[in-house]
Design a protein around this nucleic acid. Structure first.
Lengths: 207, 207
DNA sequence: TAGATATTAGTACAATTGCACTAATTTTAG
DNA sequence: CTAAAATTAGTGCAATTGTACTAATATCTA
């Protein structure tokens, strides 16, 4: 990938994060980079290609972190670490999550990929819960659809913690991520057994 | 309020829900109502006045439901009923929640009001939890910030269940609300005492 | 009923946007 | 070194949008 192309993606990402997707036109990006609009069109024929490019950049980073998670330190530690990495990645591409619905509506390629992704993610989460139960870290279901609904809540939190943060605070910085990591991680705590809770506390202490 | 004004608000709400906020221009609305753009401008000088009008319509409905909730049937029942009503209201004005960030960015009047609202709502939720603990329905805190974080998760779920539903399903209808009512209501279940859980099941059965 | 007011229609305008097109310039390859 | 290819600049265009403005019509009031 050419340098200019990289520069365009990088500048676009930052501008989108700062001003929001719809507030940043191709001219905004070109002006900011001090290149001509024609040059921008040369590298990205359509505006949508920039956003799609950024989306798949993010996906790649997420995949990379997923494959390199250290699971040997225990289920909890692995999940905690992965959540943290994911949140950091999402933060760098937060415009995508802040204008999530708009993105899904305007860019069918992204929507298609994302729908496949969440199906996958939901299955992984269900499997994770099963493993936790079998390891005696998590209690069994007590009410109907309990863990299916828990999974769904985890998905919502994962997708929209950034949007919620954006609304509540004036300025979102990296330090806020820690706070939201605590908020989302604790979602699983009350379902843990005594043994699971000890493990959980250990991970929270070490992090 | 004149009939035309009401018709404009109603049509706008439906068009916004269907096509998304940014896809509906004043001309779209005027054409749909078979009135002239000039007439629309007469009733709403600025486009933002329509959205602000709709926002305060929603707020009014929410307030009304909040004041008329039947609390004599128990804490749980009251909360459950209020949640249901709120979700139904939000569904009718879902464009607002689907383009939430955009709305907050573009309409400072709405943002200002909403920020005051969530502070209030968060306090109410905290108070509700304290009442539950004192009634022996909910256990005490076990880890740091546990209920503060729970409250925050409840806020996120309340604000973004619709957005999540929109992404996952092709078409969101009223019947889906029940499902998301279950998903969000269960968030409190694992924190309940044995007594609390009995109460919870009773409410879920009766609804 | 007559004049005032409220409502509606129709049009115009300036600004912005995505993108296409051409020409100039730089880089690369043989 | 030179021709081809890649990159960049600059300009133009059609479409859309919010909204201002004027004139026509309908409704109300005294």
């Amino acid at each position: 990938m050419s340098t200019t192309k990289k520069r365009i993606l990088n500048a676009s990402r930052k501008l989108f994060n700062q001003q929001g997707l719809s507030a940043v036109s191709q001219r905004t990006i070109a002006t900011h980079l001090k290149i001509s609009p024609g040059n921008l069109t040369y590298h990205f024929k359509k505006r949508s290609e920039i956003i799609e490019g950024l989306y798949f950049e993010l996906v790649e980073k997420m995949d990379h972190d997923f494959l390199n998670v250290e699971m040997e330190k225990g289920l909890f530690f692995g999940l905690y670490q992965l959540t943290q990495k994911s949140m950091e990645n999402l933060f760098e591409y937060r415009f995508m999550m802040l204008d999530f619905i708009q993105v899904m509506r305007e860019f069918p390629i992204i929507k298609k990929h994302y729908l496949k992704l969440i199906t996958q993610r939901e299955e992984q989460m269900q499997m994770f819960i099963q493993m936790m139960i079998q390891s005696g870290l998590m209690r069994k279901e007590e009410i109907k659809n309990e863990y299916q609904n828990l999974t769904r809540r985890m998905m919502i939190l994962g997708d929209f913690w950034l949007a919620s943060a954006e609304i509540n605070r004036e300025k979102m910085d990296k330090r806020q991520i820690e706070k939201y990591l605590e908020i989302t991680s604790q979602v699983i705590y009350p379902y843990l057994t005594a043994k699971g809770k000890r493990e959980y506390r250990k991970v929270e202490r070490d992090s």
